[in-house]
Design a protein around this nucleic acid. Structure first.
Lengths: 192, 192
DNA sequence: CCGGAACTCTAGCACCGCTAGCCAAGCTGC
DNA sequence: GCAGCTTGGCTAGCGGTGCTAGAGTTCCGG
């Protein structure tokens, strides 16, 4: 039965290759360039193979999004760990968040903007996403005051998301970005 | 030469019909249902006619977005006018903004989310959009303090945009919406 | 009345996500 | 060792997309 095991190994490997190809293609040429035909060519298999691994293109994008959540969580954690004091931690994590969105726009879109069926508000949130959210929440904890921490975090997070997504599609003046970021942090990282 | 005038009138009328059809279709069935074939059928002309009015589908969507800006500006202005005091004005305009996004998701997406080439940061912003932004700015003026009013407004606006867009695609718990909105308002409508 | 301009239509291109059905390889039971 | 079945990847194709070339019709000016 070792053959069966090898097969399963190869199959898992191919699945990873699909997600990796989708991610790389999206990051280098944008999601519009990610088509099932292109993806199939990239992994050197025919199109229908993709559908034996994933329900459809949306499921592949969701898989990329989950991977991206891991990266985001890691970068947020690093920013929090590097902070010197509580207030600076908020500024640092905000900058890290904005940098992530700026540096990996395709990944960011997969996680937050694209109409994917990535489970969010339900109970089975991807663990990586929960980690990213928790990093934000822990950083904000000293400033939540009487507000519910989760709600407080969601609101701050929304501010960050609004800043980066409006700027990325040209709705905000790019040169004011840092000032807006500082302003948002200032409004949320204060006591009382 | 009256004939030429009649022709131009009919042509302008047809252009309005295209935009109206796109808007109605998007609002009732979502942007996915807005295809050039469907649009052509709706106005009872053939597909290529659309391209004699607009450069492409994107341009039609941009026209719908500009119309939508007018609606948004009107609703924000009404909310501001109905306010009893300065702080309540911020809460009112925030609620009006969120309600607009909730009640007309397709229109909101056309304005802010879809990757349209609607001119924003350039000098020729649609006048309706400038009006909407100005309503926000005037409402926030008493609370901007030392911050640049425009930057301050952009940041608050980003917060609103983040809240509504994350909630609309299932990234935020719907039942906490009003609390988040109140929290955002509270952070921006305070002195000092 | 007729030549030319303006305009709309049919038909089709290249692409999309997705799937039915064929065919070859490999495992299983005799 | 061999027949038959299962597995799994392939080719080909469906119905859709945005967009356009070129034919055909209508109408205006001389």
């Amino acid at each position: 039965m070792a053959i069966r095991e090898r097969r399963e190994r190869e199959r898992a490997e191919r699945e990873r290759a699909i997600v990796a190809a989708a991610r790389e293609l999206a990051e280098s040429e944008g999601w519009d360039a990610v088509t099932t035909r292109r993806l199939a060519a990239e992994i050197e298999y025919s199109q229908p193979v993709l559908y034996s691994h994933f329900k459809g293109k949306g499921a592949i994008m969701a898989a990329v999004a989950v991977e991206g959540c891991g990266d985001l969580a890691a970068e947020l954690a690093a920013a929090r760990a590097a902070a010197t004091d509580e207030r600076q931690a908020v500024a640092g994590i905000a900058t890290a968040y904005a940098d992530f969105a700026e540096r990996r726009p395709a990944l960011y879109d997969a996680i937050f903007n694209l109409p994917t069926e990535l489970p969010f508000a339900s109970q089975d949130v991807p663990v990586e996403l929960a980690r990213a959210f928790a990093e934000l929440a822990e950083t904000l904890r000293p400033f939540a005051g009487d507000d519910n921490l989760e709600t407080f975090t969601e609101t701050f997070w929304s501010g960050l998301h609004g800043l980066v997504s409006l700027m990325r599609n040209g709705r905000l003046r790019r040169e004011e970005h840092e000032r807006r970021l500082a302003l948002l942090v200032d409004r949320f990282a204060r006591l009382g």
